[in-house]
Simulated assay, not measured.
Amino acid sequence: MQSTRLPLSDCLDAAVTAAHAAAAILQAYSRNRAELVIDTKTRNDLVSQADRESEEAVINILRERTPDYGIVAEESGGQTSGAASWYIDPLDGTTNFLHGIPQYAVSIALIAHAGSIVDGDTPLERDTPVIGVVYDPCREELFTAMYGVGAWLNERRINVSSAPNLAESVIGTGFPFRDFSFADQYMPTLNHAISNTRGVRRLGAAALDLAWVACGRYDGYWEMGLAPWDVAAGTVIVREAGGICEDIHHRDPWPIKGYVYAGNPQTAPALDAMIQPHLKKD
């Protein structure tokens, strides 16, 4: 079977267009939060019509521009297919959004499937995030990345920090909030980080946490129990900014199961070493 070459520039343009369309819907609702209809999917897992309508806007644009690609979206589901699949979080940081906390974003990523060609003539050996867009409409900050090309904040190229160790680092994280089954693995890592870093921050939007690692605001980040659409875009943005973003369990080619650590070439291995002793081994 012939491998498919992905038109990454066109894909990035489509994702940016979709992210802006979704953000326009979110910001319109943000001025009338009291009128939002809010449903509870599970404990502490909320969804509103803002999530649903912004996701629909993203999907409509991506289906029109890239009809042969699969779509996996937070609210409407979907499945992977073809040479690549989009992973969409139309509102990362829903709880922040609903409480009027200006820390949320639209996150869109393209995952190229094994066998696709994105650079040169050699097909990819494993599924790989190749396009990442994270748009923060409150700050009007657009984080983008393209596999093998680089990462940008608006039109400025970005790089991870140069922090040499955890002791000189500010680290982002996320507490268990929906699934508490891994709390006994997570809490010792949080205790270690509090005691051995310059500071720990928990701002409640994983896509932005990863984007902030990419631009050097955070020196590292780790979290457990996320969803693939929370981390897909951030993974490629961190990697293209010169950083490391990987699966905590070292099983998957990207943190598709939502157990993620990220940082620069010094801090990421240090975070990994901090986490590993506390993981349950299968």
Rank of each mutant, 00 (worst) to 15 (best):
I108L: 08
F97E: 05
I111Q: 13
I38R: 04
A50L: 06
L124A: 09
G82D: 03
R33D: 00
L110K: 07
G93P: 03
G70P: 07
T80E: 15
D39A: 12
I71G: 06
P67R: 10
A114G: 12
T128F: 07
V118S: 11
Q49G: 02
I38G: 05
P102L: 04
E75H: 01
A112T: 02
R43G: 11
L110W: 12
E56L: 13
W86L: 10
L36P: 08
T94K: 04
T94E: 09
Q103C: 14
G93W: 04
S76V: 10
W86H: 10
E35F: 11
G115N: 03
R126K: 14
E55H: 02
L98G: 00
H99Q: 14
I59A: 08
E64A: 13
G120M: 06
K41C: 00
L124F: 12
T40L: 05
Y69R: 12
D39G: 06
N60M: 05
Q103L: 14
T80G: 13
A105E: 06
G120C: 08
I101W: 07
T122I: 15
D39R: 07
H99K: 15
Y104T: 01
D51P: 00
T95L: 11
D89H: 05
V106M: 05
G78W: 05
T95W: 00
E55Q: 07
T94W: 06
D92G: 02
L62D: 01
Q103S: 15
I59K: 07
T40D: 04
G93A: 03
A73F: 04
I59F: 04
Q103A: 14
T94V: 06
I117N: 12
A109D: 10
G82I: 06
D45I: 01
K41S: 00
N32R: 15
R31Y: 11
R52E: 03
G120T: 11
S54R: 08
D119W: 11
T42W: 00
S116D: 12
T122F: 10
T128V: 10
A34D: 14
G78C: 05
P67Y: 09
I38M: 03
G120N: 10
I88G: 04
D89Y: 08
T94N: 07
I71S: 05
P123I: 09
S76E: 11
D92C: 01
D121V: 13
I108T: 02
R126D: 12
E125L: 14
D68W: 01
E53Q: 12
I108F: 04
R43F: 11
V118E: 10
L46S: 04
V72H: 09
R126V: 13
D89P: 00
G78Y: 08
L91V: 02
F97W: 08
S107A: 15
V58E: 05
P102E: 10
L62K: 02
I71T: 03
V58L: 03
I101R: 08
F97M: 06
N60F: 02
T66Y: 05
P123D: 09
G82F: 08
R52M: 09
